[in-house]
Design a protein around this nucleic acid. Structure first.
Lengths: 207, 207
DNA sequence: GGGGATAGGCGTACGGTGTACTCGTATCCC
DNA sequence: GGGATACGAGTACACCGTACGCCTATCCCC
């Protein structure tokens, strides 16, 4: 009986992501998204509870692209590695939303699908009970931390250069370490760190 | 010749932290901090470049409390573990600033001191060149991610309960894993996850 | 002791934000 | 064609960060 809806949450999420990619995360606002859709600001409130839910939608959209289907024949460390790298790739495709992912991750259905796939691989590896909990949370912590470290202070960025240039008498080992880090590609860094975690979980080799 | 300064950056940082602890991170504003100090809003700008620098001060204050002196006789994994747990404890003492730590961490002198101590322990463990870089970045990723996972989605919190209650036909392993996670204390979780990473780095036992 | 230079404290104002309230009206069923 | 429904949006308010500029407290020097 009433008039039909003219917007969709998917459309709003896409518009919000477009705003973030064009003008940066700081420019994400109810007004900006409404303008992006050619609609009044308050109209959005018919579809979204408020700004928080808008951010949830963006996170969901980014995470929805992660493929969680994995070759069942692969050994479990390879399956976990594949899932971890896909998650990282999805985030890397939209670097501007990284800060949102950190705080809104738990509200996303995509996170659950990903978690189920990881935990299933761990179960195949013989992890049960609390050991599986620890393994999963450790992997999740590493992936989340690594994505963040990569975007907020990449080895190839000015931060590393600044640390390498620190006075050697105060930070002798750190400055030297930073100097060796300049040449490591972000992909390599993530893969090799993940291999460390997997080895710690008992994987035969570092994937 | 001029009149003396009446505020200090340390005092401003303490006032800002007090605001965050009392009213939450969302309440942190230039106006709120100024009111906390009984001073006009714009007075703060004589001591702080702007809101960003205010946040840097808070992060610095939280991280300044981390003791980076470690018994030189300890084996390297024990030294790294001690440093990691101290960092986690410092953050845990002020949970409200966790989101700030994620984005402002690199601007803090305390982070550098901590990094030097960790990297020195790694050097004692025989890590050199790129292997030391990877080891350090992996540890940093884990610690940062774990702190965040702990505060945004603790095993003892409602998120875990909600996942445990998910339909078993859609999330069979995940729901079961969450059910086993409810009883793990946050301290244990961090320690055991850290042990995984250290084992992956070649430590003899899990510290 | 008095005067002047220096810079600290802050009042005001502007453009931005999220969102509560309200109302006109487009839309579909009968 | 008439009426119920709830959508779209205008307006308004409280709050934010901060640029500008004034008043004045403070200390040095004479």
């Amino acid at each position: 009986m009433p008039r039909p809806r003219s917007l969709t949450t998917a459309g709003i999420a896409a518009a919000a992501l477009a705003v973030v990619e064009r003008d940066g995360l700081a420019a994400l606002s109810m007004r900006a998204v409404a303008a992006e859709m050619g609609v009044g600001t308050m109209s959005l409130y018919r579809y979204v509870r408020g700004r928080d839910e808008l951010e949830d939608l963006v996170v969901d959209l980014v995470l929805a692209g992660v493929d969680t289907a994995v070759p069942p024949g692969d050994p479990w460390p390879a399956r976990v590695a594949t899932l971890a790298e896909r998650a990282r790739a999805a985030v890397g495709a939209h670097p501007g939303v990284v800060p949102l992912l950190l705080t809104r991750r738990h509200a996303s259905a995509g996170t659950l699908r990903w978690g189920e796939a990881v935990v299933a691989a761990l179960a195949d590896g013989g992890f049960t009970g609390e050991a599986r909990v620890i393994a999963f949370r450790t992997l999740m912590s590493y992936v989340l931390g690594a994505v963040q470290v990569e975007h907020l202070g990449p080895l190839s960025g000015p931060g590393t250069a600044a640390i390498a240039a620190l006075p050697a008498e105060r930070y002798p080992v750190l400055a030297d370490t930073a100097a060796h880090g300049r040449g490591i590609a972000a992909d390599d860094e993530f893969r090799r760190g993940l291999a460390v975690v997997l080895r710690g979980l008992g994987a035969a080799d570092g994937a």
